[in-house]
Amino acid sequence: MMRALLRRDLLQFFPFAGGGGAALPLLFFVAVAMLYPFAVGPDPNMLARTGGGVVWIAALLAAILPLERLVARDIELGTFDQLRLRGVSDEAMMAVRMVAHWLSFGPLLLLATFPAAALLKIEGEPLRLLLLGLVAGTPGLAAVGLMIASLTASLRAAGAALSGLLLIPLSLPILIFGAGALARGDIATLGFTAAISLALVAITPFAAGAAIRAAREG
């Protein structure tokens, strides 16, 4: 049951899977890394010092690009209702969706970090910290994204603007510790990123499940 759900979700959200999943977040991520040196000038020291933070912000924004279709579409299609009738709990649906959402952008984002890092002159130890930080932080970003998507799913008019607004407080801790590890050059800081990420991953299925239940009653 869960495997069939995950398969469908991946087909929906994974770029290049042919099911309508968009590669846009990924392109967006690389585009930011490409444009940044043009905007601030090609000074390698400056790029190396600030580039990590830019990659983090790009990762964060890339994670919220697919939010609009993440939950609202299946509410409109009636998929969640049909699954509910088959005894699948809302929490299980959301847990599967969280995994699918992360799989659809996390690993590809890590791959895209290599060209992005090359453009921003990040190499050696900072690159390692950046990659490890993204490994620790992106599950949290996926969780936050799903939480926001499910909360705003029934508010048709609010859409993207509200999602962006909600993202700021919720993702700030991940960003502070994730990008902070780069500034301090200290891997221990990533422990905090991972811990926050885990906490978000743990509560999101319940929060998002409650949100779509509320949307159903509305």
């Binding site: 049951m1 069939a4 469908r8 087909l11 929906q12 099911g19 309508g20 409109e76 299609l77 009636g78 998929t79 209702d81 049909q82 699954l83 009738l85 088959r86």
Partner: peptide, 25 residues
């Protein structure tokens, strides 16, 4: 089993595949 105005079938999938998802469940 509920039949309402929403078919709960993925719009971009061919009908057979969209039905196959539910058939598998």
């Amino acid at each position: 089993g509920l039949l309402d105005e929403r078919p709960a079938l993925d719009p971009e999938l061919p009908l057979a595949k969209a039905l196959q998802f539910w058939a598998a469940l």
